[in-house]
Amino acid sequence: MDLRYVIPHPGPLTVSGDLATNWKNWKRHYENYEVATKLNKEEHSIRIAALRAALGVAGCDVYDGITLSEDDAKSYPVVLKKMEERCVGKINIIYERYCFFSRSQASNESFNTYYEQLRRLIKTCDFKTLEDELLRDKIVCGISDVVLRRKLLQETGLTLDSCISSCRLFESTALQMEKMTLTSDDVAIHAIQNKYKQRKWPPAERGSKMNRGYDGSTPQSEELPKICKFCRKVHVFGRRYCPANGKTCSRCNGKDHFAVACQATVMMISADRIESDEEEDDEVLSFEHMAPTAFRNQPSTGGVHEKTEDSAGRPGRNHARRG
């Protein structure tokens, strides 16, 4: 079976926009396609024809713009090199290195993604033998986690491989610790919420009595448990889910509620307070009956105060005498 009809084709080259970036991406996919289909083992003339066919109409226009001698037109590596010079142009080493050194890890970016981006940028920097050392230095200086950076700086003899291993281990450990810090209460709460969210409620007729809650509303399958005012327990909102439904209260002998949620308790407390207030009023009113009879029956003098003397000749209280 010919694998060329099974493995997907990379598609035509996009010449609009950033041609240099489009060519780099297209070339990477096409090289993988050549290896997978064993097209790289064919003769140069067949590979050149396959390349022109894969470029598409717009890509062939770019191909026709390159200058090739008669011998160069028969060599696939030369054709590919000329095509890259036409699309990418002359590489600006200073700009390519600027893009590499200014690339830092984003806040929500994983280390593997950040590392692959650095590997892609460093290919066009022409660092030669310093490539591994500068890549290691950029990883240490560009990672977003300060704790990890301090740990890497404390290691003596840090190599590129040990730096990559430490970063991956630190990231995986942080994810594991985040899962392990959940308390038992949090786990229980999440389990209850997931249970009620995933539960399939039985269908019921719209507006039916069995499908309505205390306030006449229809319970939703996404609704979470609430504290019921009839049983003081946590359950899904609805009369049929309440354990007090149909039960008799031991305090007031009422229906559909427990004694712990009985409203008669509040009424009894209010009645006791009213009775206590009435007893205090009775005590105040009874003070007049406890006062001396002579004081209660003291005649009025019309609003004019005058001094009186008792039987022993001692001065008494001032009394008002009316005019």
Rank of each mutant, 00 (worst) to 15 (best):
D2H: 10
G11T: 01
G17F: 07
D18T: 02
L19G: 06
A20Y: 02
T21I: 07
W23C: 06
K27R: 14
H29Y: 06
H29P: 01
Y30I: 01
E34G: 07
L39M: 13
N40T: 02
N40I: 09
K41C: 08
H44I: 00
L51D: 03
L55M: 12
G56D: 05
V62Y: 01
Y63C: 11
G65H: 10
T67W: 08
S69E: 07
K82R: 15
R86M: 11
C87L: 04
C87S: 02
G89A: 07
K90F: 03
E96S: 13
Y98P: 03
Y98D: 06
C99F: 02
S104I: 12
S104H: 14
Q105C: 07
S107N: 10
E109D: 06
F111T: 00
Y114Q: 01
E116W: 06
Q117T: 14
T124P: 01
T124I: 01
T129A: 12
T129K: 09
D132M: 04
E133D: 15
L134R: 08
L135V: 01
D137G: 07
V140N: 04
S144W: 00
V147M: 09
R149I: 00
E155L: 09
E155C: 06
T159G: 13
L160C: 09
I164F: 07
S165P: 00
S165W: 02
L169M: 11
L169T: 14
E171P: 05
L175S: 11
M180I: 12
T181K: 15
L182D: 00
D185S: 11
D186G: 10
A188L: 11
I189Y: 08
A191R: 14
I192W: 05
W201L: 15
P202A: 13
P202W: 04
P203F: 08
P203K: 13
A204P: 00
E205A: 15
K209V: 12
M210G: 05
Y214K: 05
L224I: 08
P225I: 02
K229L: 09
F230W: 11
F230Q: 13
C231Q: 05
V236C: 08
F237C: 03
F237L: 04
F237V: 03
A244I: 00
G246M: 04
K247W: 00
C252V: 09
D256K: 07
A259R: 04
T265R: 13
T265H: 12
S270R: 15
D272C: 10
D272H: 09
S276M: 08
S276K: 15
E280A: 14
E280D: 13
D282Y: 10
L285V: 10
F287D: 12
E288V: 11
H289M: 12
Q298P: 00
T308Y: 14
E309M: 08
D310E: 04
R314E: 13
R314Y: 14
P315D: 10
P315I: 09
G316H: 07
R317D: 07
